[in-house]
């Protein structure tokens, strides 16, 4: 029986990593509620949650810190899952939500709203979402020829992104006086995100992550190569299509809430993969918790680093992400 024990041992070790990531998420959640323009004692957070005593900080906690942290957790998890799915689908370690056109689609749509219809801020999220989805499916359709080849998706994604990127630049040139209001969206930030944004993203997170969990076995089959996966009875094209749709749903909902937040979908799955390996049964939960933890921690850091000035989380992610990338390059992981 030593064989089985050894198997369980290995699984147990990886399971422990997942638990550690979950604990990290909880710790960064507590920090995120605690720190900001006003530091809140842990005692007050506790009493607010238990509802025993009225706290002075109750309003800040319930209406600012908690929903913002909630958005950070969901956005981090969504982008991480989108990235981990796309890397498997495209068989490319550099694939991330931006590769399928989600960023440029949401970006252009979002900029149109912010610049041309600044008086309609509430339509920003749905319009950005629609833009992301339309572009993602356009990229997919363009890449289609008797099936879908990962390289074709990546090339189509890059081309469409460049095209729409020039659209964004044109908008910024023609309406240079209104660019100021779009910066938060362009770099990706969580400032002033509250319960309405939670309501927008939560349903997509739940549905998307559930579908990703259902797809775990299929993703593992895909890892064995297209021919072997087919030989084992997998509908390879369908898995690619449906999992791309799930990734689009998750990434588009995240981008529509926080703007063009880069690197999360790239760094998190990579790191998780380095630590726990390729098995999606472990890789997926590890990415979810790590994504939520990193984004929440980065946002907290951005709030306290140069207080009272708030550094958008997108800037922090870029500052961590680019060197991380170079590190991967030196270690020949890419």
């Amino acid at each position: 029986m030593s064989k089985k024990e050894a198997l369980r041992d290995r699984a147990g070790w990886k399971g422990l990593i997942v638990v550690i990531f979950a604990v990290l998420m909880v710790i960064s959640t507590i920090f995120s509620i605690q720190f900001g323009s006003a530091k809140i004692p842990l005692k007050d957070i506790w009493t607010t949650f238990t509802g025993d005593i009225q706290s002075d900080f109750q309003n800040i906690i319930w209406n600012i810190r908690v929903p913002r942290t909630f958005v950070a957790i969901l956005v981090g998890a969504n982008l991480a899952v989108a990235g981990v799915l796309l890397q498997g689908i495209m068989k490319n370690p550099l694939a991330d939500p931006y590769i399928i056109g989600v960023s440029s689609g949401a970006g252009l749509a979002g900029m149109i709203v912010l610049i041309l219809y600044p008086h309609l801020p509430h339509i920003l999220t749905p319009v950005a979402f629609i833009g992301a989805t339309i572009v993602a499916f356009t990229v997919y359709a363009l890449a289609w020829e008797k099936g879908i080849a990962p390289t074709r998706i990546i090339l189509a994604g890059v081309a469409i992104s460049a095209f729409l990127g020039s659209g964004i630049s044109a908008l910024m040139v023609f309406y240079s006086d209104r660019v100021q209001g779009t910066i938060d969206f362009m770099v990706g930030g969580l400032s002033a995100r509250s319960w309405p944004q939670v309501e927008v993203i939560l349903p997509y997170s739940i549905v998307g992550i559930l579908l990703a969990i259902i797809g775990i076995r299929k993703m593992n089959l895909l890892m064995l190569g297209d021919r072997t996966a087919k030989s084992l009875g997998a509908r390879v094209e369908w898995i690619r299509f449906s999992m791309t749709a799930v990734a689009t749903l998750l990434a588009a909902s995240a981008v529509s809430v926080v703007g063009l937040l880069g690197f999360v979908g790239l760094i998190v799955p990579h790191t998780a993969r380095l630590i726990v390996g390729n098995d999606y049964r472990v890789l997926l939960p590890a990415s979810i918790f790590l994504g939520a933890a990193i984004l929440t921690a980065s946002d907290t850091l951005g709030r306290i680093m140069f207080a009272p000035i708030e550094v958008p989380v997108g800037v922090i992610m870029g500052a961590i992400g680019a060197p991380f990338f170079l590190y991967l390059l030196r270690r020949k992981m890419v």
Partner: peptide, 11 residues
């Protein structure tokens, strides 16, 4: 089917 080319697996 045993495919002609098989990736190296972390398994």
């Amino acid at each position: 089917l045993l495919a002609q080319v098989n990736d190296v697996m972390d398994l």
